Amino acid sequence: MSDTLVTLVGNVATQPEFRESVAGGMSRFRFAVTPRRWDRQKQNWADGPTSFYTVLAWRTLAANVAGSVSVGEPLVVHGRLRVHEEERDGQRRFSADVEAVAVGHDLTRGTSAFKRVARADPSLTERPKALVP
């Protein structure tokens, strides 16, 4: 397997957008990650430069993200890193997306209440079978 898996700890920068598609639901949001380090000379914590990622979630994870995540909340995101390169106005630009495998609230900065999603009974949505004589 040649996927690059990453785990990011940061804050939600934009409200998740949810869209329904033929392949299932898709949710996306921007995620801000700012490293924090102890500066020995100044004897205090210092923030590094903030990196922004677009996080994409699919199917059930997409619906759960859309219903559970808001701007400013601290999250842990685990998924596949995708780096894109494009040329615009004669300059090469890079952007990074994370195709999420798992998303959760960062419990080092608060509490959260988990609520399991009830799966629908498949028999309720099945098409009636034709009567065979």
Rank of each mutant, 00 (worst) to 15 (best):
R88Q: 09
A23W: 01
K42L: 14
Y53L: 10
V77I: 14
R59H: 06
A23G: 02
G72R: 02
Q91I: 04
F31K: 02
V98Q: 03
L8C: 11
T50Q: 05
L107P: 06
N44S: 05
A46R: 13
P35I: 15
V69Y: 00
F114I: 09
V9L: 13
D97C: 03
D47R: 13
T50H: 00
Q91V: 09
T111N: 11
R28E: 12
A96Y: 00
R30Y: 02
E73V: 04
G79P: 08
R36G: 03
F114W: 03
L61C: 05
R92I: 07
T60R: 08
E20N: 07
M1A: 11
V33N: 09
S21L: 14
N44I: 05
Q91T: 14
T50G: 04
T60G: 09
D106W: 05
V101T: 11
E86F: 12
R37N: 00
V22W: 02
D3K: 14
T50I: 04
R59A: 10
F29Y: 01
D97M: 09
N64W: 05
R82G: 09
D97L: 07
N64A: 14
V22P: 06
L61F: 11
V22K: 13
Q15M: 10
D3L: 08
E17H: 10
P49N: 03
L5I: 15
V69S: 00
E86T: 14
N64R: 06
A57H: 10
R28I: 06
A63H: 13
F52Y: 13
F114D: 06
G24T: 10
A113S: 13
A113F: 09
T54A: 04
R30I: 15
V65E: 01
P16F: 02
E17G: 02
Y53E: 07
F52I: 11
V12Q: 01
K42D: 13
E99A: 15
S68F: 11
V12L: 05
V33D: 12
R80P: 05
L5F: 14
G25M: 08
H84G: 04
G25R: 05
S2I: 07
G72N: 05
R82A: 13
